[in-house]
Each structure stands twice: as structure tokens, then as C-alpha cells.
Simulated scan of single mutants.
Amino acid sequence: MTIDEITKAVGGIKNNVKQLIYKMCEAGVVERGTMGRYRLPKSQADLAGI
């Protein structure tokens, strides 16, 4: 998902979502994919059944 898609889904403020996603990337909770898209790391995706 892109930052805009995540912001719309959670009903948040774009800058706040962007900062949180950055921190989550640093912590390894999400990964940055191609072209500004973010996703769960493979290990977490397996746990979530995705």
C-alpha cells in the first residue's frame, strides 16, 4: 500500500502516517517495496495468512 492508501484506510493525517510508517520500517515491522509501496515482511505475512 502507498502512504496515501494507508492514510485513507485509517482516516489519519498523511504526515503522521508517513512518520509512523518510517519508524515501523526502521523497527522491521513493515518493509518498503517498490515505488513507494509498503508491505509486511515475509515472516509476518506468513503468520497473518496473507
Rank of each mutant, 00 (worst) to 15 (best):
M1A: 11
M1K: 08
M1Y: 09
T2D: 13
T2I: 10
T2H: 08
I3R: 02
I3V: 08
I3P: 00
E5D: 12
I6T: 10
I6S: 03
T7W: 02
K8P: 00
A9C: 13
A9Q: 15
V10W: 10
V10S: 08
G11A: 02
G11I: 06
G12T: 08
I13N: 14
I13A: 11
I13E: 14
K14D: 02
K14L: 03
K14Y: 04
K14M: 00
N15T: 12
N15V: 07
N15A: 10
N15D: 09
V17T: 09
V17H: 07
V17F: 09
K18R: 14
Q19V: 13
L20R: 11
L20A: 08
L20W: 07
I21T: 08
I21W: 06
Y22C: 05
Y22K: 13
Y22R: 10
M24R: 15
C25T: 15
A27P: 01
A27R: 12
A27E: 12
A27F: 05
A27V: 04
A27I: 03
G28V: 10
V29R: 10
V29W: 13
V29G: 03
V29L: 14
V30E: 06
V30I: 13
V30D: 03
V30K: 02
E31R: 06
R32M: 09
R32Y: 04
G33F: 05
G33Q: 05
T34V: 04
M35Q: 05
G36Q: 01
G36F: 01
R37Q: 06
Y38C: 04
Y38M: 07
Y38L: 06
Y38N: 06
P41E: 08
P41D: 09
K42S: 05
K42P: 01
S43M: 11
S43P: 07
S43L: 12
Q44Y: 10
D46G: 03
L47C: 11
L47K: 14
L47I: 14
L47W: 12
A48W: 03
A48R: 01
I50C: 14
I50L: 15
I50A: 14
I50G: 08
